[in-house]
Simulated scan of single mutants.
Amino acid sequence: MAKNNLPKAGFTLAKIALGGAVLVGLGAVTVAYAQTKPLQTVEKVELDKYLGVWYEVARKPMYFQNQCDRDVSATYTLNENGNVKVDNRCYSKTGQLKQSVGEAFVQNSPFNTKLKVSFLPEAVRWLPVGRGDYWVLKLDENYQTVLVGEPRRKYMWVLSRSAHPDESVVKEYLDYAKSLGYDLSDIIHTQQTQK
């Protein structure tokens, strides 16, 4: 009497399928855990080193960037009041310059890793409404590449001092974002035409 009616090849395929299902399940659990784990920022950001021009190299879709087709950049300068002026620029598909000027407010001085950004008109920007989170999640020691996000993991940017950074560096930062629970299936790689 045969103890198992499954052919040997069928049994092996069943084991492979079960193993694959377990791996997929573990992957889903890992992503779910990463998304519920509190988002960690870098230890500290020295604002004077962080100021200047950054080029966007990758981002998750965001409604206020819908018209941005290429050459997205952000310039950060220190205001007299100690807050950071944010000057975002990009070009539309028709070549029209789009600019949005706002202000960033440090939320955890002296660490400077969590900011709130407002693009409200300057006269009412002091109001603590309409501000978005800007958290520094990964930053190299030379302040050349940065991963910025927010705690719900809906929005994320990889910025670089170079319009054309090394692809392996960009991959490293995107892999890190994925490890934090970001879904990268809709990632946009920004076209930069500057040299």
Rank of each mutant, 00 (worst) to 15 (best):
Met1Arg: 15
Met1Asn: 11
Ala9His: 10
Ala9Leu: 15
Thr12Cys: 09
Leu13Trp: 09
Gly19Gln: 04
Val22Leu: 14
Leu26Ala: 12
Leu26Gly: 13
Gln40Met: 04
Val42Pro: 09
Val42Ala: 07
Glu43Val: 02
Leu47Phe: 11
Lys49Asn: 12
Tyr50Pro: 01
Gly52Thr: 10
Gly52Glu: 03
Val53Arg: 14
Tyr55Asn: 00
Arg59Gly: 00
Arg59Gln: 00
Asp69Val: 06
Val72Gln: 00
Val72Ala: 07
Ser73Val: 08
Ala74Leu: 09
Leu78Met: 11
Leu78Trp: 08
Asn79Leu: 02
Asn79Thr: 07
Glu80Asn: 14
Asn83Arg: 03
Lys85Pro: 06
Tyr91Asn: 05
Lys93Glu: 11
Leu97Met: 06
Glu103Leu: 05
Gln107Leu: 09
Pro121Ile: 11
Val124Tyr: 04
Asp133Cys: 06
Leu137Tyr: 10
Asp140Phe: 12
Glu141His: 14
Asn142Asp: 15
Tyr143Val: 01
Gln144Asn: 15
Val146His: 10
Gly149Lys: 03
Tyr155Ala: 00
Met156Gln: 07
Trp157Phe: 10
Val169Met: 01
Lys171Ile: 06
Glu172Thr: 12
Glu172Cys: 01
Tyr173Gly: 09
Tyr173Thr: 03
Leu174Ile: 00
Asp175Gly: 05
Lys178Ser: 03
Ser179Tyr: 12
Ser179Gly: 15
Gly181Asn: 05
Asp186Asn: 12
Gln192Trp: 01
Lys195Met: 07
